[in-house]
């Protein structure tokens, strides 16, 4: 009989729980920039491969000081705001109707599924014929691009609204519109807002596409022109502006979520 052998139970938990480390993202960003700057200065990265970060900053400074930054930014933001507003409003309304009515759902879900994967850029020439080469086609492209993901996110969110809450509303004699306004819409808001993050990111991507046709000013037009001229400094300055726009949109939605969804556990 071997004597009773005592040993601690080995620890098997731990891991699988990454935590945020402050400044790590910034450090990666900064070291990439420093590496590029050093590489372009010392010459092992040719002027053809990457622009010098300091030159990009200089280009950005010129954009700012000549006032061209806002000349490009204002039309782009207008297009994004108008196009996305149309797309998101129609998308949320359609999504709610799909979420609530059997006929609308059966009729429109296949249509939306068919529209979703269409590269909206491919339809740009068509939009030019339908809506004109000026702002109309640009609004339409961004609206269309933001519409489909919003619809899908919205009706998914409406489906996820707790049905007992709706029964509760009915049991208190609330009317249809009151139930939609006071129960369905707020209940679907988390899903709608997270869908909005995706929709608006798509909107920013489509901004460049929308400005391919007939745009004299705009961040997208600026980037496309820089690409055509193989002007890497301007190209990157434009890309940085788009990235900043993306971060801005994400931050704004984050703030809205914080305000509107503080009831979430």
């Amino acid at each position: 009989m071997p004597e009773t052998h005592a040993q601690p139970v080995p620890f098997r938990g731990g891991g699988f729980r990454p935590v945020a480390i402050r400044g790590a993202g910034l450090a990666v960003f900064a070291s990439l920039l420093i590496l590029t700057e050093w590489g372009t200065r010392s010459g092992w990265i040719s002027a053809l491969t990457l622009p010098r970060p300091s030159d990009v900053v200089k280009t950005f400074g010129e954009l700012w000081s000549t006032g061209m930054l806002f000349k490009h930014l204002v039309p782009s933001l207008t297009r994004l705001v108008v196009g996305a507003s149309i797309g998101v409003t129609l998308g949320v309304s359609t999504g709610i109707l799909i979420g609530l009515f059997s006929y609308v759902r059966s009729g429109l879900v296949p249509l939306v599924a068919a529209l979703f994967p269409i590269p909206k850029i491919a339809l740009l020439p068509l939009f030019v014929i339908w809506f004109g080469i000026d702002e109309g086609s640009k609004y339409a492209l961004i609206a269309f691009g933001t519409f489909t993901p919003t619809v899908v996110a919205t009706y998914g969110a409406v489906d996820n609204v707790d049905r007992t809450l709706i029964r509760m509303g009915q049991s208190f004699g609330m009317g249809w519109f009151a139930i939609v306004r006071k129960i369905v819409l707020p209940g679907a808001m988390p899903g709608i807002l997270s869908g909005l993050r995706i929709s608006l990111a798509i909107g920013i991507i489509l901004l460049v596409a929308a400005e391919m046709l007939g745009a004299e000013y705009g961040i997208g037009a600026y980037i496309l022109e820089a690409g055509a001229l193989y002007d890497l400094e301007r190209l990157f300055a434009g890309v940085v502006i788009l990235s900043a726009l993306g971060i801005l949109v994400s931050t704004v939605i984050g703030a809205i979520e914080k305000r509107l969804l503080n009831w979430r556990t």
């Binding site: 030019v128 014929i129 046709l213 007939g214 745009a215 004299e216 037009a221 022109e225």
Partner: peptide
Amino acid sequence: TFKPLQKVGAIIGA
């Protein structure tokens, strides 16, 4: 006023 349209096909259409 110059209208950039990227491709010859798009210019012809416009």
